[in-house]
Amino acid sequence: MIRWLKELLASQAVADGAVGAVAEASLRTAPAAAPPSAARPAAVSVGAEAETLARQLALVIDLNVCVGCHACVTSCKEWNTAGSAGPLCDENAYDANPTGTFFNRVQTYEAGIFPGTETIHFPKSCLHCEDPPCVPVCPTGASYKRKSDGIVLVDYDKCIGCKYCAWACPYGARELDEERQVMTKCTLCVDRIHDEQMAPADRQPACVKACPTGARLFGDIKDPLSEVSIAIRERGGYALMPEWNTRPANHYLPRRPTPAVGATAPMPSERDRS
């Protein structure tokens, strides 16, 4: 709260001009004078309290190859409704207005102007933020981020169904289960990935196992040699809504234009993006 007020005052001071220059100067010099251990990057001022974990499991989604088949959606639902996170209720499943709890949705967007339009299928689930805004607001402690692997989870036995965490998530990643009246969300299949009874190849989230095009990568983004870290590094992996400093662990790989041999102009989609 105090940090929030400080930021507010700072932003007003900047608008004031001369006063702002003094305030900014003092802000800039302060970390330099402090011992190196106390110096922190200013960019994470909102989430300065969030500790950086040694391990952070995450999904990396390749928008080049997702074909929007929803296999990850159904596989997620199937595994999790029967797993430790379930049951995920459905209401009016065979009526006019079916609704239900899902941890993963595949959305579709259209970019560009005809005839240079692109259809982009966009899977969206909890991003397992490194500074998750949904966790500190929980009044009961039911929402938490695991220190061992960075997964954000809900303890369904402690949740009171106040929905405040869903309000505090800018991504709409949390869905209240209408039947159980507790908040639910993607668990990264925490009951699969650590299961020693399963074959090592199966210790992956159900969505990753189901994807027929290999659009979903899973791994530790803190391990620089992991498949996901290499993909983020080499293919320009990006996070959603970077403006809120939530530092999502899940990343998306942007589409790459494939120029035709002998082409003089970039593809239409490239032109629209610039």
Binding site: T99, Q107, I113, T119, Y238, L240, R273
Partner: peptide, 28 residues
Amino acid sequence: RSTLQSATGIAAPRLVQTSMGMSAGSFN
């Protein structure tokens, strides 16, 4: 501050949703 472009990371000036991924409503 957030736009459909920052929410999806797709930089196209014209960007519209054609499906939210379900045929009826949800909690969201």
